[in-house]
Design a protein around this nucleic acid. Sequence first.
DNA 1: TATTGTTATACTCTATAACTATA
DNA 2: TATAGTTATAGAGTATAACAATA
Lengths: 159, 159
Amino acid sequence: MPQPANRISRPKDRTEVEPLDTLVGYNLKRAYMIFQDDFRKTLGDSGLTPRAFAVLTLIAQIPSVTQSAISRHLGIERSGLVAIVDDLEKRGLVLRVAVPGERRVQALAITDNGKRAHKISDEAVRKHEERLLSVFSRRERQTLLDLLSRLRNWKENLP
Amino acid sequence: MPQPANRISRPKDRTEVEPLDTLVGYNLKRAYMIFQDDFRKTLGDSGLTPRAFAVLTLIAQIPSVTQSAISRHLGIERSGLVAIVDDLEKRGLVLRVAVPGERRVQALAITDNGKRAHKISDEAVRKHEERLLSVFSRRERQTLLDLLSRLRNWKENLP
DNA sequence: TATTGTTATACTCTATAACTATA
DNA sequence: TATAGTTATAGAGTATAACAATA
């Protein structure tokens, strides 16, 4: 005889359920949270957020990079960059500089203070990674890095 | 002679900057975003969110699990579970059931509809993972899973 | 028309704190 | 005192849409 669809499933109905641990997505999320939390704890309340650190790194790395270019690099919206660059500028770490011949853009330049701040943050971040990855051998760390970046590069090169 | 600290760094000052790609945290975030976006696209607007899917999976897996237990399992706050369980209950996928002898808790039970919905979602999620991991060999997928879950287990077993 | 930077806005996710009822 | 569930609330993070200036 037919059963109401929303009755509680009885034990004898129980089928094996694939546990969450077998999903890469679930494990990615948990691992990401661990890194994210520790990053913030490491750099502190007045320190750079992960995003601001990423932006500062790109400005340090790519001379005269623009906000649009950064948004493409990081896969985030242009609009989100305004507040971050505002903050970095307020801290005296970067400057918006007019570009002769292309008046729509403002090149982003890192200051000497910015370089120092980036160096200090970068060292703190490397230590935080070192700490979190201490369970792994050098080889395993490299493997993890390779696998994750292959995933990203593959996705980025899709239509 | 001393320079103002916030002058723009000139090219000759440029030192090598470690690129973001060398940070596990950065690659984790990007990979997590790829999975998250694709998960949502796969299950659609009316489908389960990653969190709701995780919760439903635990309810399917652990008979009479409580919200508190789920919050510990998933590392999220109890308060956040209320809305999720409300939603699952509204959809007729789970029920809150009174527990005799312990009147503070309500056991969560999956319904037959819930089982069906979980099975369908689970199959969609496995396919979505299969799609995203298609760049990797079986062995590489297992390695990625192992590395990520070791990270989580290590962190969970800390003071 | 397309692009850069910007603003305004809203939405999602999630944590915090406080409350209640039990234990 | 401690725990389970709940509510209210606030904050972070981020996307969307529209706009002005420029190309």
